[in-house]
Design a binder for these strands. Structure first.
Lengths: 113, 113
DNA sequence: CGCAGACTTGATTACTTCTGCATGTGCGAA
DNA sequence: TTCGCACATGCAGAAGTAATCAAGTCTGCG
C-alpha cells in the first residue's frame, strides 16, 4: 500500500470539510451546474468558488466541461449522494442526542417528534 | 437554525478528517474498545489519542464510560458504519477513475507511488 | 492516607488551510 | 487581431489544526 487506506479516507473527508464544497456537491447532486449558477447560489467570491471547485476536481469528485462559453460542472462519483444522505442522518441523530442531553440537564423541554 | 445546515455538515466531515479518528471509528464500529486497546492498534501517543477521542466526544459521535479501572469507548450514532461504508465505495470509485485517467492522458501533477 | 496506573488536559510550536486581491488564460464576438 | 466575458491561478496575511511534553485528575489498592 502506498498510502494507508485510512489516511486516504481522512483526506477524502477533509475534502468535504468546507461549507462551500458541501453546497457545491449538493447542488451538483441535483443536476449539473455552470459556474455562474453555483455562484448565484453559494454566496462566495468567484475566485474562492473556483478554488473550491479545483479542490473537488483534484479529488476526482467532479468534472468540468465547456458548453457555449460557460463551464459546466458535474459529479463524477454518484455515490456522493448516498454519502451526503448518510451524513444528514447522522447529523440529525447527533443533534437529537444533544437536545436530549440538554433536556436531561435542564427541566424546560420541548416536544421532540 | 442557529448554524446553516451545510456548515454543520462541513464541520462534521472535518471531524472525520484525520487518520487516527477514522481508525478509532472503524475499530469502535466493530465493538467497544478500552483506550489501551485502541492505543495498541493505532500507533499514536496516548495524549494524542486522548485528544482525538475528545474531539469525537465533543462531536457527539462516541461516548466513554469507566469499567473496572479502564475507560471504554463506544459509538453513539450507529449510522457511522454506513457512512464509512459509503466512503469506502466512493474512494474505490475515485481511485479507479484516477487510474483510468492516467491511462488516457498523463496529467501534470504529483507523482504518485 | 499515599501511591501507582490509566487517562486527560494545557501550553507550545510547527504546519496546513482559508480568504481576498491581483493577475493570467481560453474562447467567442466584432 | 483585439476586445471582453467567464473562469482559473498565484500569492500574502490571517486563522485554524496537529504533535509533543509536562502537569493534572480519577480510581482502586495497600
Amino acid at each position: 500500500m502506498t498510502v494507508p487506506l485510512y489516511q486516504a479516507k481522512a483526506e477524502f473527508f477533509r475534502t468535504l470539510g468546507h461549507p462551500a464544497r458541501i453546497r457545491i456537491l449538493e447542488l451538483l447532486s441535483e443536476r449539473d451546474h455552470a459556474v455562474h449558477e453555483l455562484l448565484s447560489e453559494i454566496a462566495v467570491e468567484p475566485s474562492s468558488l473556483s478554488q473550491q471547485l479545483a479542490i473537488l476536481r483534484r479529488a476526482g469528485l467532479v468534472a468540468q466541461r465547456r458548453v457555449a462559453g460557460e463551464v459546466v460542472y458535474s459529479v463524477i462519483v454518484p455515490e456522493v449522494r448516498d454519502l451526503l444522505r448518510d451524513a444528514r442522518a447522522i447529523l440529525r441523530g447527533v443533534l437529537d442526542g444533544q437536545a436530549q442531553l440538554k433536556r436531561d440537564l435542564k427541566p424546560p423541554g420541548r416536544a421532540k417528534r
